[in-house]
Design a protein around this nucleic acid. Structure first.
Lengths: 249, 249
DNA sequence: ATATGTTATCTAGATCACTAGACAACTTAT
DNA sequence: ATAAGTTGTCTAGTGATCTAGATAACATAT
C-alpha cells in the first residue's frame, strides 16, 4: 500500500482496509455466512503486512460484522441493519414494528431560542423564537437516532415538557391537539459524526452518520416541526416510501 | 487530545478535527462567509498542537470548503452541495436544472451475468441473467454519481449499447419503447467509499458515499431496472420528494 | 494419524505523526 | 506609524504505527 496515501488521507492503513471490507459486505460482494479471504490473501490484495489486515478485521469484529474462528477463517455475520421508513407519514412505530416495545425515547435538552434563519423560514415562525428539543431514541438499549426538533415557540411553548412525558413525538403532538401531520420534504446527507454525535450514538470517532432533515406540516399546510435526525450509518438505512398509491406489490 | 483515541480509531487527529469542522459547517453552526475560530482557539478547543489544526484546515481548504487568508483568518466558502431530487419520477434532468448542458453520462463497463439473488428477485427475471451496466455521470467535469444498473437480459439484451449512445437513462429507455417509469422504492445508506469508488468519484480514500438503491417499474408494475447509485457525500445531498399532491408551497 | 491451512500472540526495528518552538509575512485595530 | 492578531513556514525530538519474523493453537483435508 502506498505509504504516502496514509499521511495524505489521515486514515490508518488498517482503517481504510476495514472500510473497504465493510463496503464489500454492504455492497453484496460478501454475503452473510460467507468466509472472508484469508489474512494472507487480504495481505496480498492490499499490499500490507498481515498484522495490519488483522487490525482491520478486528475492527469489523468489534462492530459485530464478522467473526473470526481460529483455524477456520473469518465469517460474515447476519446483517443487523435497521431499515427506517421515511415517507409522507413518517412514524417511528412503522419502522420499529414488533421492536417498538424495546424502544425508548428521551429528551436530552431543550431551549427556547432564535433558530438559524433557514429553520425560521421553513417553520414560518410567528415570532422570532423556536423551541429546540434535543432527543435520542434507543432500541434494545442501542442508540438508533439522535434528533434535533424545532417547533414554533408561540404555538407550542410547552412541547419540550410534553415530549418528556411521551413515548413518541406522535404521541406528544396528539396530546397538544395535533392528530395528523405529513412529511413535506426531506433532505438526506451523510458525513462523519462529530465528537458529540459519536458519543451520543455509541460510535467511534470518525464513524459515518446519515442525516435526514425533514419538514413536517399539518394537512392544511401549516408547518409543524423541522427535525434533523442523525442515524448511525453502520446500523441504519433509510427506506424511502414514494407515495401516491401505485398499487405495486 | 487523547493519543490512544487515535490508535483505537484509525483516524489521524487532524482528520477527526477536519470532519468535526465539516460537520459544524454542514450543520449550520458555521455559515458561508463566517470566519472560523483562530488556529489558537481551535488548538485549545481540541487539545492539540496548532500544526495539527493547520493540517485539518488544509484538508477542508483542499475540498473547497474554506479559504485561509494570512493575517485575516479562515473563512467558510459557498456551499456547493448539489441537491439530487429523488421521487416517484426520478429524473436526473430534474436535479440538474440549468446545469444539464454541462452534464455527461458515460458507460464504463457492461456484462450479461447472473445477478445476486436479491436483485434477481426484485427484477422478477424471466431467465437467470441480467444486464449489468456500470455508469458514471459528471457535471461540469466533476463526478456526480457512480451507478450500477441492472436490467432483465431477456427483455433488454442490448440496453448497454443503447445507453452508450444516449445522454441519459431516460432517453435510452424511451428508444427501446419505455415512455414512462416510476420509482417504486429506494433504500438510502452511507458508508466510506471503497478504493474503486473513491477513484471513480475523485475522492480521497476514506471519504463518505451516499448510496441509493432504487427499483424502477413500468406504470403497470412490471419491474424495469434496479440501480445502485453512489454519490460523493461531501458534494451531494438527496432531496426526497414525498409524492401524493399535498398542494404545499 | 498426519499434513496443510488458518487465526492468534509474542518480540522487535524502522518509519511516520504529532508535538514544540521560533520567526516571517500579512491583516486589522488603535 | 505602531501594536496586536492571525496565518505560513522552517527545523527538530519523541512516541506511535506498520512492518517483520517466529511460533502456538485450532480446524480442515487426506
Amino acid at each position: 500500500m502506498n505509504k504516502r496515501t496514509r499521511s495524505a488521507t489521515g486514515y490508518a492503513a488498517w482503517r481504510l482496509i476495514a472500510e473497504e471490507l465493510r463496503g464489500d459486505i454492504a455492497g453484496g460482494a460478501l454475503a452473510v455466512g460467507d468466509r472472508l479471504p484469508t489474512e494472507q490473501e487480504l495481505s496480498e490484495r492490499f499490499g500490507v503486512n498481515r498484522h495490519t489486515v488483522r487490525q482491520a478485521v478486528a475492527a469489523l469484529a468489534a462492530d459485530g460484522l464478522v467473526e473470526s474462528r481460529r483455524g477456520s477463517g473469518t465469517y460474515v455475520l447476519g446483517g443487523g441493519i435497521h431499515l427506517h421508513r421515511l415517507g409522507v407519514r413518517t412514524r417511528m412505530s412503522l419502522s420499529l414494528g414488533d421492536r417498538a416495545e424495546a424502544s425508548a425515547v428521551r429528551v436530552l435538552d431543550s431551549a427556547i431560542e432564535a433558530p438559524p434563519a433557514d429553520i425560521a423560514d421553513a417553520l414560518r415562525l410567528r415570532g422570532d423564537r423556536a423551541v429546540r428539543v434535543e432527543g435520542m431514541r434507543t432500541v434494545g438499549g442501542r442508540a438508533l437516532v439522535r434528533g434535533t426538533h424545532w417547533f414554533d415557540a408561540e404555538r407550542f411553548p410547552d412541547i419540550a415538557a410534553v415530549l418528556r412525558r411521551s413515548r413518541s413525538v406522535t404521541a406528544a403532538l396528539r396530546s397538544v391537539g395535533v392528530d395528523d401531520y405529513l412529511r413535506v420534504s426531506t433532505t438526506v446527507s451523510a458525513r462523519h459524526a462529530t465528537a458529540d454525535e459519536a458519543a451520543d450514538l455509541a460510535l467511534e470517532p470518525g464513524a459515518v452518520v446519515l442525516v435526514a432533515r425533514g419538514l413536517d406540516a399539518l394537512p392544511d399546510g401549516t408547518p409543524l416541526q423541522l427535525v434533523v435526525a442523525r442515524f448511525p450509518a453502520q446500523r441504519v438505512a433509510l427506506e424511502i416510501e414514494h407515495g401516491g398509491g401505485l398499487g405495486l406489490a
